[in-house]
Structure formats: structure tokens, C-alpha cells
Amino acid sequence: MKRSGILLILLFVVLFVASQVFFTVRQTQYAIVLQLGKPVGSTLEPGLHYKKPLIQTVEFFDKRIQDYDMQPTEVLTSDKKNLVVDNYFKWRITNPLQFYRTVRTIQGARARLEDVVYSELREALGRHTLTEIVAKERGAIMEQITDEASELVARYGVELLDVRIKRTELPPQNEQAIFNRMRAERERQAKQYRSEGREEAAKIRSSAERDRSVIIAEAKRQADEIRGEGEAEAVKIYAGALEQGPEFFAFQRSLEAYRKSFGNNTRLLLTPENEFLHYFK
């Protein structure tokens, strides 16, 4: 029994010493060995490693991509518009030794990165107008900020992968003024469109009236021509009939005159020798 207790104590001591000497680096980690607070050796790859107990410690760093959501900040655009920008950036550690020497911890790295990104963001957005930032050149501006900030943070042993704007807003004190200006601009455009519409309608009506007058005049001209041709043809027919039977033609014309002259309550005072009564004899 006493011997078993001694074995357990020895086993505990061995395990404790082994935990102080051996350590494991995971696939998602970097590790560096510190001796009295100073890095020794190079960055350790994933696997089982050892260190000197008591005088050496191990510092682990996450090698995966990390993102950081910055606090919304207010920037001034080139057209003197205040803009509240809510953005984030993605980064990762690439050189653990340099990272430890310069910023030490993740929190320290975030603080440095936030300062650099905010400075580049303010400078880049200050060279563009509100419309370019919000709609036209947003992607290109973000790529430019990412490239410039990445060069500045490389000395910290990190890589800046992406900077993006999640949301852009106007400061509360400027929103109402901007909305009023937008409303006035839309009303001005609406008035312009209505005026242009009335002008175009007047042109269409004028053109239609002109076409109508031309069509009516042309129709009257054609009607007069047809009527003239018909009358000429009638005269021609009458003339032909007169040549073929002048006596009959005279008799027919006389009958028509009698029909028109002798109506109800018609009185004529004529002598018997009057030529008008020729066919009554």
C-alpha cells in the first residue's frame, strides 16, 4: 500500500514535469518560446515541442483570419459633407516574432490597426465626394484604403486583408437639411418635366392642326376638281344630246321649266303668243 502511494506520487511528478517541458501547437496556432520574457528561436510549427521548465514559457497566437468591427466615425468629404461611416476590417498574423516585439497582444494589435485604418479612411474619403463614396466609386476607394493601410501595418507582423464600409449615414443635424434639399430638387425637376410636357403637347397639337388643315384643303381641292370634271362631263353630254335631237332637247327643257313654274297657287299673266307657251299650242 505504501509502495503504491509512492508510485502515484512519482507518476504525478512525472506528469507535472512533462507538462512543464512538452507542449502542443495546434494547426490554427503559431507559437514562440519566451525565455525571461524575450523570444528565443523561431516560430514553431504545429506539432509537439519542448521547452526548459521554469525559465521558458510559450506564447500562442491565432493564425486564422480575424475581423474587427470599428466604432462608427464621422468624416468630411471633398464636397464638405459630414458622413458617419460604420466599417470593419479583416486581418491576420503573419510574423509572430515581429508581432510580439511590436504589439504584444491581440488587443494591442487591434488598437494599432484601428488607428491606421481610421487615418487612411479619413484621408481617402476626404478626397472624394459624397456621391462617389456612397454610390459610384465605393469599391475602388475601399481597395485603395486596404492597399495603403496594409503597407503601414506590415511592420507589426500582420497582414491587412480587407477594409469595408458596412453603412454610411448622415449626422442627425444634417439629415433634415439634406432631405429638404433633395425634396426641393425633385420638385424642381417635376416642374421642369411638366413644363417640357406641356410644350411638347402644344407642339403635337399645333402639328396635328396643321396636318388637319392641309388634309381638309387637299380634300376640298380634289372635290372641286372632281365636281368640275363632272360638270364638264355633264355639259358635254348635254351638248351631245342637243346635237343629236335639238327639238327634243328644247321640248325637255320646256317641260322642266313648266314643272318648276306651275306650282300651287301660281299665277302667270302671259299672252297666247308668248314663246313660253309654245308647246301648249
Rank of each mutant, 00 (worst) to 15 (best):
K2S: 14
S4A: 09
I9Y: 07
F12V: 15
V13S: 08
L15R: 04
F16D: 14
A18I: 13
F23Y: 01
T24S: 04
Q29T: 15
V33I: 15
L34W: 04
G37V: 07
P39I: 04
V40Y: 00
G41I: 09
L44H: 11
H49V: 11
K51F: 02
K51H: 03
L54Q: 03
Q66M: 09
D67P: 08
D69M: 02
M70L: 11
Q71V: 11
S78N: 10
D79E: 07
N82A: 08
L83I: 02
V84N: 07
V85Q: 04
N87A: 11
W91N: 11
I93N: 03
I93A: 02
T94Y: 00
L97A: 05
Q98G: 10
F99N: 06
Y100A: 01
Y100K: 00
R101T: 14
V103P: 10
T105P: 05
A109I: 03
A111F: 15
R112Q: 15
L113Y: 00
E114P: 05
D115G: 03
L121Y: 01
R122Q: 06
A124R: 05
R127I: 02
T129S: 05
V134G: 00
A135D: 07
G139P: 09
A140F: 00
I141C: 01
A149T: 11
E151M: 09
L152E: 14
A154K: 10
R155K: 13
Y156P: 10
V158F: 03
E159L: 12
I165V: 12
E169V: 03
L170H: 01
P171E: 06
Q173A: 12
Q176L: 13
A177M: 03
A177P: 09
R181W: 01
M182W: 06
A184Y: 03
R186T: 07
R186L: 06
R188S: 07
K191C: 00
Q192E: 11
R194F: 04
G197P: 01
G197R: 07
E199G: 01
E200I: 06
A201S: 13
A202E: 13
K203I: 07
I204E: 14
R205S: 01
S207I: 13
A208I: 11
A208T: 14
E209N: 12
E209F: 06
R210D: 14
R210C: 09
R210M: 12
D211G: 10
S213T: 15
A219Q: 14
R221Q: 12
Q222D: 13
Q222R: 08
A223R: 14
R227V: 15
G228W: 05
E229I: 15
E233D: 13
V235G: 10
V235M: 09
I237E: 14
Y238I: 09
Y238S: 04
Y238E: 10
A239H: 04
A241K: 05
G245Q: 08
F248R: 07
F248N: 08
A257I: 02
Y258K: 10
Y258R: 07
R259C: 06
R259N: 12
S261L: 11
F262Q: 02
G263S: 13
G263T: 15
T266L: 05
R267I: 13
R267A: 12
P272V: 08
E273G: 11
E273C: 02
E275F: 00
L277Q: 07
F280V: 10
